[in-house]
């Protein structure tokens, strides 16, 4: 499963068109959390994060955790400064109008799996 397939299958809106999802980039897994220290500890490298937090620290934590991208659920959208930082750092951002629960359900159905404590 690569980022492009995930985007297409979930009908995600690409918030960072400057970073077109690379079909060669495999998505390693996914994580859902709004507690950023938890994401820092458990977010899977080269994986996806599903969250409703849209502030700048989401990008910072994504970089430190080595995430491939972030899906903002429930129609939430970051400010442009956050978007610009993500482009600069190479973190692909997506938006979905579905809840985090539904987004995660779809990712699971595609075969992605989470981390373990």
């Amino acid at each position: 499963m690569n980022l492009k397939e995930v985007m297409d299958k979930l009908g995600l809106e690409l918030l960072t068109p400057e970073l077109p999802p690379d079909p060669a980039r495999e998505v390693a897994g996914a994580y859902v959390s709004d507690l950023l220290s938890d994401v820092l500890a458990h977010g899977p490298e080269d994986g996806l994060l599903v969250t409703v937090q849209v502030h700048m620290n989401v990008v910072a934590v994504s970089v430190h955790a080595g995430l491939a991208g972030v899906i903002f659920a429930m129609g939430r959208r970051p400010e442009d400064s956050v978007r610009a930082k993500a482009v600069e750092e190479g973190v692909t951002l997506f938006a979905s109008n579905e809840s985090a629960f539904d987004v995660v359900g779809r990712l699971y159905a595609l075969g992605l799996r989470g981390s373990r404590a």
Partner: peptide, 11 residues
């Protein structure tokens, strides 16, 4: 505090 030692190294 949870130990999260792997996370500690990330930041």
């Amino acid at each position: 505090l949870p130990s999260y030692e792997a996370g500690a190294r990330r930041l």
